[in-house]
């Protein structure tokens, strides 16, 4: 099943921050990791991933550094900052109340 684009849009930032909260990663690694963690349901479109990462960086939510990975290829790693962890917590709260509310309306959650 593929997820509607609009639904994906609103949750990309929280997904990216969640991934980076586990460990620093480079862009391609994140898009692979996302597919794996969501059993292939969620895909991070690279065309949106990089602009979002760069914006998060300029807002101080993540920071980046270059390193040559296992091979000789230079990779740009992203790492979450304290500020980014704060934003993630906020977004998680928001997500939980959103999910509960939607579940309630749909009749799937606690009545």
């Amino acid at each position: 099943m593929t997820i509607n684009k609009e639904l994906m849009k609103g949750s990309t930032v929280i997904l990216i921050l969640t991934l980076l909260d586990r460990k620093p990663m480079y862009g391609y690694e994140m898009s692979k990791e996302m597919e794996k963690s969501s059993s292939g349901v969620l895909t991070l479109k690279e065309g949106t991933l990089y602009p979002i990462l760069h914006t998060l960086e300029s807002d101080g939510m993540v920071e980046s550094y270059w390193s040559s990975g296992e091979g000789e290829r230079k990779r740009k790693y992203y790492q979450i900052t304290k500020k980014g962890q704060g934003l993630l917590k906020e977004k998680q709260q928001e997500w939980i109340s959103f999910r509960t509310a939607v579940d309630q309306v749909l009749g799937g959650g606690p009545a």
Binding site: K45, E46, G47, T48, Y50, P51, H54, T55, S58
Partner: peptide
């Protein structure tokens, strides 16, 4: 193809890197 339209990607990146 996975990366998408280069013009669109470029435009979004431009937004992220406008001088502050």
């Amino acid at each position: 193809a996975d990366m998408g339209d280069p013009i669109q990607v470029g435009k979004h990146l431009h937004q992220a890197h406008k001088p502050r």
